[in-house]
Nucleic acid binder design. Sequence first.
DNA 1: CGAATATATTTCAAGCATAAAATTTTTATG
DNA 2: CATAAAAATTTTATGCTTGAAATATATTCG
Lengths: 166, 166
Amino acid sequence: MSDKLAAQPGMTGTGIKDAAASKARLRLWLKLLKATKHVEAELRENFRTGFDTTLPRFDVMAALYRIEQGLKMSELSSVLRVSNGNVTGIVDRLVDDGILVRIPVDNDRRATTVRLTKAGREQFEAMAASHEAWIDTLLDGINVSEVQHLSEQLECIARKSTKGED
Amino acid sequence: MSDKLAAQPGMTGTGIKDAAASKARLRLWLKLLKATKHVEAELRENFRTGFDTTLPRFDVMAALYRIEQGLKMSELSSVLRVSNGNVTGIVDRLVDDGILVRIPVDNDRRATTVRLTKAGREQFEAMAASHEAWIDTLLDGINVSEVQHLSEQLECIARKSTKGED
DNA sequence: CGAATATATTTCAAGCATAAAATTTTTATG
DNA sequence: CATAAAAATTTTATGCTTGAAATATATTCG
């Protein structure tokens, strides 16, 4: 399987598709996916054994930790980029566990605000510290001086998704 | 928020943790996750509207396409890095749809081999072509000359997961 | 006002994913 | 050979995820 297809004159710089570049991007995507899944699997295991919780629960808590006054359900699903129904289920369980409270919104009986409880804030702080340490270990193969460069490449991929105020 | 915490003499090169590097890795991880989720969401939508199928089904078919003689259930879950029970469910549905067949293994009545049908192979070929084109579009923000470099960084992250033959 | 439309959320059905328990068959060993 | 241990797979319980339908409330405008 030769990789030389791209070398033909008259193809580079035109709108014509480059088969070798396409294969290279495909391989890159598979690696990106593999690296991400690996880290996610480790994090899931760590959250499970260390805190008896899950990554999606942590994500919800992280979003709410920064916004002390809480977020409406729709804002939460928008920030986390998951469906409304998904957030409903995760929030239900977190409320059952005393980590979140639902607060009615004045002048709009359709909406609810969701906020971390004191216990929820404390639990999050402990988990966030561990989370950062886990990431630090899992990504320690990456040269820190490369981080900026790598970040920019990744921004290019995600750029169409949002205005990215992350 | 200053990024200068790492610049203190006596900390670099020691076993002492570097807080700024840790934060940088955390931000990098969040970007990696965002980029991956974005591409995955686009692919899911494309598979759904274009072929009325899903990414996990495609993954199973892709693994089996390369191995014409088929794979045992346990080999499949090992290659795809998902649980045995997960593979059972996906394979069940693919068999129902005539895409896969289960074949008994000689001399071991515990095991089953799973193989693509002719229809399955044909469907996969069509989907794989579209898949590659979708990836090409989704990753076109990445300079192809960067691909090799980026790949190496990603290998560093996933390195502990397996001997990595893809 | 009242009907149509829009918005916020939940419910539902289906599928994906895991970990742990159960089942079936094979292999090892006393 | 019989029983114990190991291996391959399925089943079960639980939770995440989506898209679509349903519900409830708000808003618009004729």
